[in-house]
Design a protein around this nucleic acid. Sequence first.
DNA 1: TACAGTCCTGACGTTCACGTAAGCGTAAGC
DNA 2: GCTTACGCTTACGTGAACGTCAGGACTGTA
Lengths: 139, 139
Amino acid sequence: MTLRKRKGAAVPHETARTWTITELAGEYAVTLRTLRHYEEVGLLSPERRGTARVFHQRDRIRLELILRGKRLGFTLPEIATIVNMYDEQPGEAGQLEYLLDQIEVRRAELAQRRRDIEDTLTELDEVERRCREDLSRLG
Amino acid sequence: MTLRKRKGAAVPHETARTWTITELAGEYAVTLRTLRHYEEVGLLSPERRGTARVFHQRDRIRLELILRGKRLGFTLPEIATIVNMYDEQPGEAGQLEYLLDQIEVRRAELAQRRRDIEDTLTELDEVERRCREDLSRLG
DNA sequence: TACAGTCCTGACGTTCACGTAAGCGTAAGC
DNA sequence: GCTTACGCTTACGTGAACGTCAGGACTGTA
């Protein structure tokens, strides 16, 4: 799921498949406006052929990351910092340490969210149990 | 963490503690406006003494559920359906089955979010690994 | 060549979840 | 009895994440 190429990983010579904005929107159940918006805020940067957008595999992967971030309740700027981690250039030490910091921040947030989910699931179990109890009392 | 009383669970006779809006806001790090907003949309319904709001333990519990829902990225209406599950009256069979349906829906959403979190954490690990690798190469 | 289909760029509108005054009531303390 | 603190309602403002036109270009096809 990494976007960054570590070496010159010899891409197969065939022309890679691309997608139009309508195709991508259909496949991921988002609107054209949404995809354009993600480009506006720098989350996607499809190739242009003339004025038309041409989406590559790279854009699909980023889009999947974006949608996942949305499901997790992150804002688009937050998602940007996460998504951009994946294709950061090696860079210099200060940058790398900043990146490590960011990773810790996100990790902590995600851990909290996971606890929230566990708690909620447990309580839903309890609600369901009571509910079935009441139902059987009625039947 | 249940709000519904199953029987006449003999409440201790001492007067239960209550909280003012400012106290509650301070404790949960939200604004007065936020608490009032939650009341506007029916998520909280504090007692009124004159015009002033008086919050009870029940309200604290609901507020905790609300904040957890927010961390999980649910909208306030979505949170309402979840929170209201906790203190539904036993009700009739149709209602109970509807509730069971709702529980399934939420459970599925939460399961998806949990997968999202797992995936993201795994990938953060990978990013961190690469990052440390690059750092050691520099040091 | 006419027209349907797909794409584009503005740019204003909308919903959600509050923020932010403005203006007023009331109870405590000096 | 005046100030200060806290609380209230009403109501307009705001930022994020798009929705929704309007107007225009290009492209295949009947």
